[in-house]
């Protein structure tokens, strides 16, 4: 019974989100050897807006992104950056066309991001919770 009530509490709000079937939470992943154990949502936002470019040890960060118009990307920016995708691309157009910034590298999806992060200590990416495996290290769960 208790389990049932808990499930209702979990499922009910998800139904309201409308994308309940596909959205089971996102996680932020890095290379297993990366010394970082956790990251704040605030720092993550700054990384994806290119306002923070280095890890605490001074090495450069290479953030990875999902294709434009993907649901995963939409959810990530809404929850972490607090902006719609069109606001984000408007923000980037100011940096790109003044030569002041390069947006995160776009990958085809969870699998490609995992492969890239597993091969690059500077990589950071976000994937769906269901795609987690041992090749990468989770440093934040986005609810």
């Amino acid at each position: 019974m208790k389990k049932f009530i808990v499930s209702i509490f979990i499922i009910f709000p998800l139904l309201f989100l409308g994308s309940a079937s596909s959205y089971a939470g996102l996680v932020v992943v890095v290379h297993p050897a990366n010394s970082m154990q956790a990251i704040s949502k605030e720092d993550l936002k700054r990384i994806y807006l290119s306002k923070k470019k280095e890890f605490s040890d001074g090495s450069l960060i290479s953030p990875l992104d999902h294709p434009k118009d993907s649901e995963t990307k939409k959810t990530f920016y809404k929850k972490v950056v607090g902006k719609s995708l069109s606001q984000v691309s408007s923000y980037w157009s100011r940096l790109i066309f003044t030569g002041k910034g390069i947006p995160p590298r776009v990958m085809r999806g969870d699998e490609e991001i995992k492969v890239w992060v597993a091969g690059h200590p500077e990589g950071i990416g976000y994937i769906n919770k269901k795609s987690i495996d041992d090749s990468v290290k989770v440093i934040l769960t986005i609810k």
Binding site: K53, S93, G99
Partner: peptide, 25 residues
């Protein structure tokens, strides 16, 4: 945190000057 650029650049006279032709921005 440091970038030095040389060549043909655009004057940042006003806030939007450097991307004044990028209407989307």
């Amino acid at each position: 945190d440091l970038s030095i650029r040389a060549g043909r650049l655009v004057l940042p006279v006003m806030m939007v000057s450097e991307f004044v032709d990028v209407g989307y921005a």
